[in-house]
C-alpha cells in the first residue's frame, strides 16, 4: 500500500502502480470459499476436464476483485465511487495476471474530487481478461 495518491498530483495519462500475480489453484479455492461461488468449474479439475475445459479456471469476480485491489491500493479503501467491468476471457492457473489502471479524467463534482480511470487485467502475453472503468474519490 504505502501512501495513497493525492488529488493534486494526478494527471490524465498517469498509471497506478501495477499489481501482478501468478494464479494458482489455491487462489481459486480461496476465492470460492470467500465468495460462496462453488461452481465446480473453478475447483473440480476432474469435472472441468470432463466438460471439455483444459483445467479449472478462475472466477470472473476474482479477476474483478484483484483489479479492484489495484484501485484501492492506489487511492485507499472506501474511495471507489463506481467500478464496472466486462468479462472477456477466462483465466487459467499458471497465468501471470497483470493490472493496468490509466487516468482518463480528473474533475471536481459537487465538492468531490474525482479521478476517472480505464482499468484492465491481462495475462503476460497481453490477452485481456477483464476490461472496465472506474471513478475514484481521491
Amino acid at each position: 500500500m504505502g501512501e495513497r495518491v493525492q488529488f493534486d498530483e494526478v494527471k490524465v495519462g498517469d498509471e497506478a502502480p501495477v499489481k501482478s500475480h501468478v494464479l494458482t489453484r489455491t487462489d481459486l479455492v480461496k476465492y470460492a470459499g470467500a465468495s460462496g461461488d462453488f461452481n465446480p468449474m473453478h475447483h473440480d479439475e476432474v469435472l472441468a476436464t470432463s466438460a471439455g475445459q483444459p483445467s479449472v479456471f478462475g472466477h470472473g469476480m476474482f479477476s474483478m476483485g484483484f483489479l479492484g485491489t489495484a484501485l484501492t491500493d492506489w487511492v485507499g479503501a472506501g474511495r471507489v465511487v463506481r467500478y464496472g467491468v466486462r468479462f472477456s476471457r477466462q483465466t487459467w492457473p499458471g497465468e501471470t495476471l497483470v493490472t493496468r489502471v490509466v487516468v482518463t479524467g480528473v474533475r471536481e463534482d459537487a465538492g468531490s474530487r474525482l479521478v476517472d480511470v480505464d482499468c484492465s487485467l491481462a495475462n503476460a502475453q497481453g490477452e485481456q481478461k477483464v476490461i472496465g472503468t472506474a471513478t475514484l474519490a481521491v
Binding site: H21, F66, T69, A77, G78
Partner: peptide, 14 residues
Amino acid sequence: AVFADAVKDTDPVY
C-alpha cells in the same frame, strides 16, 4: 478479512 485475503488485498484497514 477472508474476502480481502482472497482478492490479494493486504491493507490493514480491512
